[in-house]
Design a protein around this nucleic acid. Structure first.
Lengths: 251, 251
DNA sequence: ACCTGAACACCGTTCAAGT
DNA sequence: ACCTGAACACCGTTCAAGT
């Protein structure tokens, strides 16, 4: 029987490095002098790992690389973290805890909007970590998660309850907004200028290939598709969401 | 140069992988040697890969395992796919294309709701693939993506424009709803019954650990947190979204 | 007892050799 | 020309040996 447990499943190997992404990058900051190295603790391990991921992506983070970056034997890392997955969890946690806490402005809608934008900003600042934060099975029971990751929930509940939402409604609202923002951010991170050479939207987006009879509306929106603006998109979604929430508050 | 290939619509639907489209050939019928094993083509490779991922998760999918599963040399797979990443893309594509097309019921709100639930059902049916679908940089220019993955967009645009939304608004609405559903699904997939032994919600969720002074509202919602119902949660979010959209339509 | 690094059991992918 | 599988350059993690 196959047990589906991300941790216990096995010490499942990491895939090998892409051929192209090999020795082209130097360590982020090489401190050859051993005196400069701080003590090796979990904090420093995770922080260094985050730097590597930010700079070069998840695949670049190997235990060996991490050891090199820390200036220690790769195996020494294992004294502060059980395995690579735990390092990834630590990274996600480190980033989430940076979530600014735009305290109560008195206007719950403004506060929700601010939180959403704060999350987006954080994701854009750590594009390689965002999928980790959103996607990783933080299957830790909610109460056992790092307190820093739970504060946004508590604060948002306060916000909404103070605004008149019943506690359970506040929870659902929190989840709806959070889901939307998470989905938005993931979508935005995938948005990419692909061929900046080309000026024609239809061509640049490859839309010319779509059978006009079958995709008239998609093709007609070439301009709008090319002008994607993540911040504006987020705001428009929030407009809809907030408008719906106002209605719910009255009804 | 990309060729407009009418056949690509369903059977092949090759993605934008530049190198991916190369080795494609007609499946010659010569190779009945291994008995019941079919000919080795991209379709079978991807389909087999999906089965492995569904059953055991992403990490279980190695090129060697894939070869074993297909009953061929692991390297033979490389004749139908450029690398492992392309296999993952193929899996995501295969799943997305299964998205049911709940055609126009005449009620755009009902249609949106049906699409959302169809997506959720698909994600629950392929929990290991959902993050792939949502998270993978399908940085392929939109027009070069498999047609099957673009149909939901076109269809939804039609739906919304027919309901009275301006084309650009329809696009934003599509994105808002899609983002929300994606975020919801990712959240739901992480939800887990952790310790079914324990009956007390506070204990089961570990909430007892939270300082009561700092997390009063979170603790108070233990019951609601324990009774998470993904389908209902999705519907409540959609309620808010649709309510907001109705308002936007009128304003 | 702690620390180290060699060794193990895997990877993805290349490429020379075989047909 | 196609196909094969040995070989390469990596992995995460274990564990015996050293201190």
């Amino acid at each position: 029987m196959v047990v589906d447990d991300p941790v216990a499943a096995d010490g499942d190997a990491r895939r090998g490095g892409r051929a192209g992404a090999r020795g082209e990058r130097r360590p982020t900051s090489r401190r050859p002098a051993s005196g400069r190295r701080g003590a090796l603790d979990r904090e420093r391990v995770v922080r260094t790992a985050l730097a590597v991921v930010d700079a070069e992506g998840l695949d670049a983070l190997t235990m060996r690389r991490l050891g090199a970056e820390l200036g220690c034997d790769p195996m020494a890392v294992y004294r502060h973290t059980p395995n690579r997955d735990a390092v990834l969890d630590g990274i996600a946690e480190l980033v989430v805890e940076q979530l600014a806490t735009p305290a109560g402005s008195g206007d719950w809608q403004e506060d929700l909007r601010a939180s959403a934008h704060a999350f987006r900003a954080l994701a854009l600042a750590h594009p390689h970590v965002a999928p980790l934060v959103i996607t990783r099975p933080l299957s830790t029971p909610i109460g056992l998660r790092p307190l820093g990751t739970l504060r946004p929930l508590e604060r948002t509940l306060a916000l909404l309850e103070d605004a008149g939402f019943a506690p359970e409604d506040a929870l659902h609202v929190y989840r709806a907004v959070t889901s939307f923002v998470a989905g938005h951010v993931l979508t935005e991170l995938q948005e990419l200028v692909v061929d900046p050479e080309e000026t024609d939207d239809l061509l640049r987006l490859g839309l010319y290939r779509l059978p006009p009879g079958e995709f008239p509306r998609t093709r007609a929106l070439a301009g709008a598709l090319a002008r994607y603006d993540g911040g504006a998109e987020l705001d428009q979604g929030l407009d809809v969401l907030l408008s719906g929430l106002r209605a719910q508050l009255l009804g």
